[in-house]
């Protein structure tokens, strides 16, 4: 049960290092939003090219928990949708696959914002 934790740590850590280098070595004024958008888009593209699948196989949560994993889920869903129901599936597949994540983010985000106040 614990054998897959170390690969998750290493793969997840390395993906985050890529994000850190992106922040530190490119031009100033990179905000978290830029990093997150780049990662999700990169995840979709790599997922579409079939290059993200091996990372998930090796790293498990190390590849699915970073936001590139969210992109991978979207791409995988879109391709599966395209396979089963053609063009319409290409539109619905991605969002369907990522639906739980999106819904969880909306509801948990909303509830937290209701309960807490910013601390500064």
């Amino acid at each position: 049960m614990f054998a897959n934790i170390i690969p998750a740590f290493i793969v997840g850590g390395l993906i985050c290092v890529v994000g850190q280098l992106f922040m530190d070595l490119t031009k100033a004024n990179i905000q978290p939003a830029h990093v997150l958008v780049s990662f999700v888009t990169a995840g979709v593209v790599l997922g579409g090219l079939g290059l993200y699948e091996p990372l998930v196989r090796i790293g498990g949560a190390g590849a699915t928990i970073p936001l590139s994993g969210f992109g991978y889920t979207l791409a995988k869903g879109a391709m599966e949708g395209a396979q089963s129901s053609g063009l319409l599936g290409a539109f619905s597949g991605g969002v369907e696959a990522a639906a739980v994540g999106i819904a969880a983010a909306v509801i948990f985000g909303y509830l937290t914002a209701l309960v807490f106040n910013p601390k500064g």
């Binding site: 888009t41 579409g48 979207l74 879109a78 949708g81 290409a90 991605g94």
Partner: peptide
Amino acid sequence: GPILVYGIATSILVGIIYV
């Protein structure tokens, strides 16, 4: 918002290319 826009739009593109 931007994350969903770029993520979903790119995934649809991937799906269309796949089709």
